[in-house]
């Protein structure tokens, strides 16, 4: 049952990936296009990581790469959205992550990196969502940015709890805690992939000349 849920969560990534690919030209916004590119790269890395884990090969380096791509995505967002005061914060985040990776070892997973990056991302996206209200001239749910921000906020805030205590949880090696982690991650993945799909499906506003 749990295995099936994990598989469904894993394959659910294909839905937004395919929608985004076929709809790339009509994606609502430059930011969404950048997100789609980063999401595609992260999906490929996730697939590799998933299969390596099935072969019992250490796959942490791929997840560290996913974190780094997330930072790159955040930096590009700050440039596109002209949030000048956020760019230096992302740069600091990048330096912190690099330092942390080098200190921990690139081949090892750093839960601290994960917590810091995704907490920052969620808070930043919550800020962007509150700002979006002022930019829109029709219902907010018709904007692909809305679904993207919602997806990123939910993903961050619903997964960081486990990663805050990740080292401790792993040390305990308790199956029920790991089971909760897997189920939680899988459900969140499925929901978030639905939200990303919705985001990629939102059409540009028709301009009347």
């Amino acid at each position: 049952m749990i295995e099936a849920l994990i598989d469904i969560a894993f394959y659910s990534t294909l839905v937004p990936l395919l929608i985004g690919m076929f709809n790339f030209k009509h994606l609502d916004d430059k930011l969404i296009k950048v997100f789609f590119v980063c999401f595609s790269i992260n999906s490929v890395l996730d697939i590799i990581g998933y299969y390596l884990a099935h072969q019992s090969i250490k796959n942490h380096i791929y997840y560290n790469a996913v974190d780094m791509i997330t930072i790159v995505f955040l930096f590009i967002v700050t440039r596109i959205e002209k949030d000048k005061w956020v760019s230096p914060m992302v740069a600091v985040l990048f330096i912190f992550s690099c330092y942390n990776l080098l200190a921990n070892g690139i081949l090892d997973f750093s839960s601290l990196n994960y917590v810091v990056i995704y907490t920052f991302q969620s808070i930043y996206m919550a800020y962007k969502l509150s700002k979006l209200v002022e930019e829109v001239d029709r219902s907010i749910v018709k904007y692909s940015k809305f679904w993207l921000y919602v997806g990123l906020i939910l993903f961050g805030f619903s997964t960081i709890s486990v990663y805050i205590m990740f080292e401790y949880v792993m040390k305990l090696g308790d199956s029920s805690v790991i089971l909760f982690h897997s189920v939680n991650n899988s459900i969140v993945c499925i929901i978030v992939n639905v939200l990303y799909s919705k985001s990629f499906l939102c059409q540009k506003k028709t301009q009347i000349y």
């Binding site: 919602v150 939910l154 619903s158 709890s161 205590m165 949880v169 308790d174 805690v177």
Partner: peptide, 20 residues
């Protein structure tokens, strides 16, 4: 630990949904 994880995840999730 399990209870703590469930409660913290549920709280954060509820807060995000409330905000949205």
């Amino acid at each position: 630990i399990l209870v703590l994880l469930i409660v913290s995840t549920a709280s954060l999730l509820s807060l995000s949904i409330f905000f949205i």
